[in-house]
Amino acid sequence: MLPVLQVGPLAIQFPGLIMLAGIWLAILAAEHAAPRRGLIPDQLSDVVLISLVAGIVGARLGYALHFLDLYLEQPLALLALNPNTLSVFEGFAVGILASLVFIQRKQLALLPVLDALTPGIAVFAIAMGIAHLASGDAFGAPSSLPWSIELWGARRHPSQVYETLAASLMFWIVLRVQEMQVFQGFLFTSFIALQATARLILEAFRGDSLIIAGSLRAAQLVSLVVLVASLLILHFLSRGIRNPDETASLRL
């Protein structure tokens, strides 16, 4: 664990730094993948930046909505540089909505954009695992396995290491799959399916799961639904193509 990096008098929040590096690498990866999908790299990095900015603004406004009376009294608090006063759900919703609006207005095709973004998302997932390792978040369930680590008052599964390894494996798969000529949307949707599978499996080793219905882990139920949904979407996307041989022969 290394939550704070001390550089002289500066205390740098190490997990935040890794996330920033992750975002930067994600944009690079997306720009790199753009020409393959017939997209302009700049448009793709615009999509990422717009969803980021909108996401952060949405997350703060979402948080403020929960405490409307307080923020109405001192609206300047909306600008506080405190990452704790952000609502994750509202942030995600607004960020995704904003990028969809942008994609619509620029008349970009949604599926190629998602496919081109996928290597970037995969890179970011690795960064997230490392950031969790640095902060001790997303920690594991108590365990006595030989590779368990001492964290938060107990010996635990190194769930952050599992997460990072799974994300690295998925990044490798994405790099392989993006070479394949399959139907549009395949890369993104199959990545979502893999991500859901990984979460479904790895959530079992987490020590901070949200528990519902007595003892079930909410994240696993959501992952299973997402996995089945993405398989169905894959099926329907593939049926949308009249002649699969035609797309395959584009390689030649």
Binding site: A141, P142, W152, G153, A154, L200, I201, E203, A204, R206, G207, D208, S209, I211, S215, L216, R217, Q220, L221, S223, L224, L227, V228, L231
Partner: peptide
């Protein structure tokens, strides 16, 4: 997927108190 997935979910259901870390000082 549904069979394996729900089997795994049930198999990895949290034993009572395993994730309620509210008792460990940290």
């Amino acid at each position: 997927v549904l069979l394996l997935g729900s089997g795994w979910i049930v198999a990895s259901a949290a034993p009572l108190g395993s994730t309620t870390a509210g008792l460990i000082p940290s």
